[in-house]
């Protein structure tokens, strides 16, 4: 297992009122993303635990692209990864932001 942590300053707060959301499953080629609204509006953080070793630079690129596109201010993402490809990671991150942007609990 390999761990990564990323912190970013972002333009704007993520929409919606939900406090937590979860998408995905930890399986081969898949991952789960737990997202919690626990940070100041101008910050976001991502903690990654992955079964695939040696992909730190790929993670950095995927996360950088995601933060730029979605500006997920105020959100902490916790990721358990079963060796997902970068496109799957991008999809799950987008789904997580979309889900927590819904109104409700």
């Amino acid at each position: 297992m390999e761990d990564f942590s990323f912190q970013h300053n972002v333009r704007a707060r993520a929409g919606g009122t939900r406090q937590t959301a979860i998408v995905g499953v930890v399986a081969s080629g898949n991952l789960e993303v737990l997202v919690e609204r626990v940070l100041p509006d101008a910050e976001c953080a991502l903690d990654i635990k992955t079964a695939a070793l040696g992909f730190g630079e790929v993670w950095r690129a995927v996360i950088g692209d995601f933060v730029e596109r979605y500006s997920p201010g105020g959100l902490r993402f916790s990721i358990n990864d079963g060796g997902a490809r970068p496109d799957t990671v991008s999809l799950r991150l987008a789904q997580a932001v979309r889900l927590i942007a819904e109104n409700g609990q």
Partner: peptide, 22 residues
């Protein structure tokens, strides 16, 4: 005991295997 409580397996880490929050 939702995933945000992170009640994960105490064993999988020993085997270097990925955990799931629920």
């Amino acid at each position: 005991i939702g995933p945000e409580q992170r009640e994960i397996s105490p064993h999988l880490n020993i085997f270097d295997l990925p955990e799931q929050f629920d």
